[in-house]
């Protein structure tokens, strides 16, 4: 256990990279599965093209034939709907909404927006939605630190920031108010209720990033028998521009701008993580007030003065960086009383 805690940052990075890799493979996989019953996958395999798409389809074919799919699903060459449904039921989607292990999973923000907009509960989503809710209530905002692919990109921005600053250039770091995101969440849901506009989903980096990825992969694979590079660039929309601008903004103007100040999804996860069971609890006797944890915290919180609150996303960066081991992970529902937060 101690060994695991010692290497928790490496474990977290590998979990996130694994999830990112799975999310990147998913569109290829869904493409293959949805085209399998149509017979055009077979046609592509039978033809003698030697391009990248061809190798990818061959790889997918190998995976599918290794006992992963039933023979009935593989055999279907007709347009019978049953075959497509069977193959698709295995896994599809991204972090916004996915089917995995036979359950429909859903992002909390998508769930909130769906509930507010349609003013009803959608029954098939209850299992997945409640699972995510329960996970958030137990473990806090771990979607942000352990799953979110956009968070990984923003971490990359942080790394670039550190590199640039190490070379002597000083970068701007404009601080905004943290409660902007709660205001954004409230107002966004309110607008959804009144106008019927799912505004928050249009500005949710993980969903946007994966949508762009899916569009690119599909443009790439749909032209499996041609040179597809031109079509791939056309598949990118204005959303990529927004994401790119956001990444640049985080690198050069404001550190972790979106996660800290603007992410409505993060705000929702924070609110539900209020009573989380895993918390960082500082041991005052061991703390030397060196301040390394404050610098390491990706959410811009202050573990050194116990000012964690609901927004701690349990990434345990402060725990790993502490030289005195003064920030252990405890199973409790209470933070250490923060002395400086009283004012």
């Amino acid at each position: 256990m101690n060994y695991l805690l010692k290497h928790i940052q490496k474990i977290r990075l590998s979990v996130r990279l694994f999830i990112l890799a799975a999310l990147c493979i998913m569109p290829f996989f869904t493409w293959y599965l949805s085209h399998l019953p149509m017979g055009d996958v077979k046609a592509i395999i039978d033809e003698d093209y030697a391009n990248v798409q061809h190798y990818i389809i061959h790889m997918m074919d190998g995976v599918a034939h290794s006992g992963f799919l039933s023979d009935d699903a593989l055999e279907g060459t007709s347009q019978e709907n049953q075959n497509i449904s069977d193959t698709i039921a295995v896994a599809s989607g991204d972090v916004w909404s996915a089917r995995l292990f036979g359950i429909e999973w859903l992002d909390m923000l998508a769930w909130a927006e769906l509930t507010v907009l349609s003013k009803s509960m959608v029954l098939p989503l209850l299992a997945g939605g409640l699972s995510v809710l329960l996970l958030t209530i137990c473990c806090g905002r771990i979607f942000c630190s352990w799953i979110c692919p956009a968070g990984l990109l923003f971490d990359l921005c942080d790394k670039i920031r550190v590199k640039i600053e190490a070379s002597g250039r000083r970068l701007r770091d404009i601080k905004f108010k943290r409660w902007h995101k709660y205001v954004l969440l409230t107002v966004g849901l309110f607008i959804g209720l009144i106008v019927g506009l799912p505004l928050l989903g249009y500005f949710y980096p993980p969903a946007l990033f994966l949508r762009e990825l899916h569009a690119v992969v599909y443009a790439f694979m749909d032209n499996a028998t041609e040179e597809a590079w031109f079509g791939v660039t056309l598949a990118l929309s204005g959303v990529s521009l927004f994401l790119f601008a956001l990444l640049m903004f985080e690198t050069f103007v404001s550190k972790r701008f979106w996660c800290r100040y603007m992410c409505a999804g993060g705000a929702l996860y924070s609110l539900f993580g209020r009573f989380r069971l895993f918390r960082i609890q500082r041991v005052k006797a061991q703390c030397t007030d060196c301040g390394d944890c404050n610098k390491a915290c990706p959410m811009g919180l202050h573990p050194m003065t116990d000012a964690l609150g609901i927004e701690c996303d349990n990434c345990f960066a402060c725990h790993s960086v502490c030289p005195e081991e003064a920030l252990p992970i405890k199973i409790t529902q209470h933070d250490v009383q923060c002395e400086s937060c009283a004012a």
Binding site: L33, I84, D94, L114, S118, G201
Partner: peptide, 20 residues
Amino acid sequence: ANFLEKCIRCHRCIDVCPSQ
């Protein structure tokens, strides 16, 4: 009207459509 409320813009129907 209900469609616009219920659709969560997950794009999964686009993903599975074999005929584009």
